[in-house]
C-alpha cells in the first residue's frame, strides 16, 4: 500500500480570501436567495399562467350556463358531473376514449418493444445512432401531416390500403375506430420507442451474462432480468401514448368518421356551454392524475 503524499502541507489555513464584490459575496453566502431568484420567473410563469388557468377551468366546471340568457351563472353545482355520469351518451364516450387510448398504448408497446430491442441489443453499435435517427425523424413531421397521411391511406376505394386489399376482394375499412387507433398508434409510437431504447441500452451486459451463466435461457433472462429493469421505461412511454390519445380530437375528426371521443365533446361544447366542456375536460385530467399517481413508485417519472 502506498500512501499519498500531498505536495504541500494542507494545514487548513487558506491563502488570503479572494476579493469579491460585496454583493457577490452576499449571494455566495445565501444559496437560498440564489435559488429563489432562479426559480422566480419560471415558477411564477407556470404557477400563474398554467396552474392558474387550470384552476380557473376546474372552478368553471362547477358553474352552469343559464339556458335562457346563455350567460354563465357563478353558483356552485355538481349538475355538470351528474349529467356526465348519468347520461349514457357521455359516459359511453368516456369509456370508449379510455378504451381507444388503452388499445393505442398496447399496440405501440407491441410494435415498439421489438424495434427498440433490435436497435439497442441486436444492431451493430455503430449503426445505432442512425437507426435512432430513422425512427425519430418522423416525430418532426407535422402532427397534422401525419394524420393527413393516414387519411389518404384509408381513403375508401381509391386509397393505398384499398389498393392493397382490392386483389383479395376487400375494400379499405374506411374512416372509423380502426383508422383512429392506427393513426394514434402511428403518431405516438416514437414516444414509446425512445424510452424503451434508452432503458434497454442502459442494461449492463454483465447482468445478462450473469443470468446466462446461471443457466437461464433467452426467454427466462428476458422475463426475469430485462423486463423488471425495462418496466419503468415502458410505463414512461405509456404515459405519453395514453395521455396524448386521451385528449386527442383532431385525429378523430380527420380519420374517425362519425366516431366521437372526449375531446370532440369538449370541443363542441366549449363555445356555448363552457362549464359543461370544463367538466368533461376534467375526466382526462383525472384519469391521468390517477395514472401518474399509480405509476409514480415505478420510477417512470424519472424516465420522462
Amino acid at each position: 500500500m502506498s500512501t499519498v503524499t500531498p505536495e504541500a502541507p494542507s494545514d487548513g489555513a487558506p491563502a488570503e480570501a479572494p476579493q469579491r464584490h460585496p454583493l457577490a459575496s452576499w449571494f455566495y453566502r445565501h444559496p437560498r436567495t440564489r435559488l429563489s431568484l432562479l426559480l422566480l420567473l419560471p415558477l411564477g410563469w407556470l404557477l400563474v399562467v398554467y396552474l392558474g388557468s387550470l384552476a380557473m377551468l376546474f372552478v368553471t366546471a362547477f358553474w352552469q350556463v343559464d339556458s335562457f340568457t346563455g350567460q354563465i351563472e357563478r353558483a356552485f353545482t355538481f349538475d355538470n358531473f351528474v349529467e356526465i355520469a348519468t347520461d349514457p351518451a357521455y359516459y359511453q364516450v368516456a369509456l370508449r376514449t379510455i378504451g381507444i387510448a388503452a388499445a393505442v398504448t398496447v399496440l405501440a408497446a407491441l410494435i415498439g418493444l421489438p424495434m427498440a430491442f433490435y436497435m439497442a441489443r441486436v444492431a451493430r453499435p455503430s449503426h445505432r445512432a442512425l437507426l435512432v435517427a430513422l425512427v425519430l425523424t418522423p416525430l418532426w413531421a407535422s402532427y397534422l401531416v401525419k394524420v393527413y397521411s393516414w387519411r389518404t391511406m384509408f381513403q375508401p376505394e381509391t386509397g393505398v390500403i384499398a389498393w392493397l386489399l382490392n386483389p383479395f376482394g376487400l375494400d379499405s375499412p374506411g374512416y372509423g375506430a380502426l383508422a383512429t387507433i392506427t393513426t394514434l398508434t402511428y403518431l405516438w409510437l416514437p414516444y414509446m420507442i425512445l424510452p424503451l431504447y434508452a432503458g434497454l441500452e442502459r442494461i449492463p451486459d454483465s447482468l445478462l451474462d450473469a443470468s446466462a451463466d446461471l443457466g437461464a435461457h433467452t426467454g427466462r433472462t428476458f422475463r426475469s432480468v430485462v423486463m423488471p429493469i425495462l418496466w419503468p421505461s415502458l410505463v414512461a412511454g405509456s404515459i405519453f401514448t395514453f395521455s396524448l390519445s386521451l385528449g386527442d380530437y383532431i385525429t378523430v375528426q380527420i380519420v374517425g368518421g362519425k366516431l366521437q371521443m372526449l375531446g370532440n365533446v369538449v370541443y363542441q361544447n366549449f363555445t356555448l356551454n363552457l362549464p359543461f366542456a370544463a367538466a368533461v375536460a376534467t375526466i382526462p385530467v383525472l384519469v391521468m392524475v390517477v395514472y401518474l399517481w399509480a405509476v409514480r413508485r415505478t420510477g417512470a417519472l424519472d424516465n420522462l
Binding site: L46, Y50, L54, L57, G247, Y249, F270, P284, V285, L301
Partner: peptide, 25 residues
C-alpha cells in the same frame, strides 16, 4: 420533484385541457 412534475405537466396533460384552460382565462 413537484417542480419537475409541474414543468412536464403542460405536455403530459392533453392539449385540449391546456387549450380550453388558457382560452377561458
Amino acid at each position: 420533484d413537484t417542480v419537475s412534475l409541474l414543468i412536464i405537466l403542460p405536455i403530459a396533460l392533453p392539449g385540449i385541457v391546456t387549450g380550453i384552460a388558457l382560452n377561458n382565462v
